[in-house]
Design a protein around this nucleic acid. Structure first.
Lengths: 138, 138
DNA sequence: GCGGTGTTGCAAGTGATTTGCATTTAACAC
DNA sequence: GTGTTAAATGCAAATCACTTGCAACACCGC
């Protein structure tokens, strides 16, 4: 596991329990954002079964520490992905099969100033997702 | 109610029932995206009480017809707004008070080609939301 | 090894959204 | 108008994602 993650946990007064390590291992092994249920299922497959509530509690906590990013794709459930070692990016999801693909681009940085000028808000984050049809489904 | 809405309903084989008209009236009177529960509450205030399930069924159907757009702000519930007579736009929400403000801008049109080239997907839609702190809360 | 605090498992609880079904109602033809 | 029929509604129950209370447990620093 990445040192930066261990350090952040320690700095946040969090312990490095066995279930937590297993969750982080799953998250780090996944390139794409996963749901709590998916993490839970993959943990079970990896013989690291734990309660679903533990998965949820950890995902929430990791998000608060800024170690994972939430990804909302209007699926009725949240997805999460580790931040460590990954560039800021977005996603596109196929409306046919649900497949998710990373988009290594972000047009937002340039826009923040404009949004702040228009709204007087202090912009702190954004979400951007694309929807469409993948080559197999269209 | 706008003719274009009536026409779309008819074209979709949908009836113009009294509950449905009341829902559309509420939606058209709201500048900002609303939740099903909010629609339900405002209907009650307007002496047009109906079952919450009816509100959900109508919002889903109106979305399928393309008459309303879903807006997901990671609140654990969906919001909806009528499309008729409104320009394509996005939103910013305050992390303090939850206030939502329209953003009459969209950097995505120019990006669609790039996304399609990178992914081979046919892009059909996108969601873009900003989060931050409003003048009162920051 | 001990103590204290953060964690976990389990079971129960929430809150949003959906569904089955019997009853009603708009829409359209006669 | 009246009848016909497909769509829509109300009501109750169900589902699904997620959260919470609490007692037992496991890290971590000393």
């Amino acid at each position: 596991m990445a040192d930066s993650i261990v350090d952040s946990l320690k700095a946040g007064g969090k312990k490095l329990t066995k279930p937590r390590q297993a969750i982080l291992a799953i998250l780090e092994s996944n390139a794409l954002p996963v749901t709590a249920a998916e993490v839970h299922a993959r943990l079970k497959k990896a013989h690291a079964h734990m309660d679903l509530a533990t998965v949820y509690r950890n995902l929430t906590m990791l998000q608060e520490l800024g170690l994972v990013d939430p990804v909302g794709l209007r699926e009725g459930q949240m997805r999460y992905e580790v931040r460590h070692g990954r560039e800021h990016h977005h996603h596109i999801q196929c409306r046919g099969c649900g497949r998710i693909v990373d988009l290594m681009l972000c047009p937002i940085k340039k826009l923040t100033e404009l949004v702040e000028a228009q709204t007087k808000f202090a912009v702190e984050g954004h979400s951007l997702e694309f929807f469409g049809w993948c080559p197999q489904c269209r």
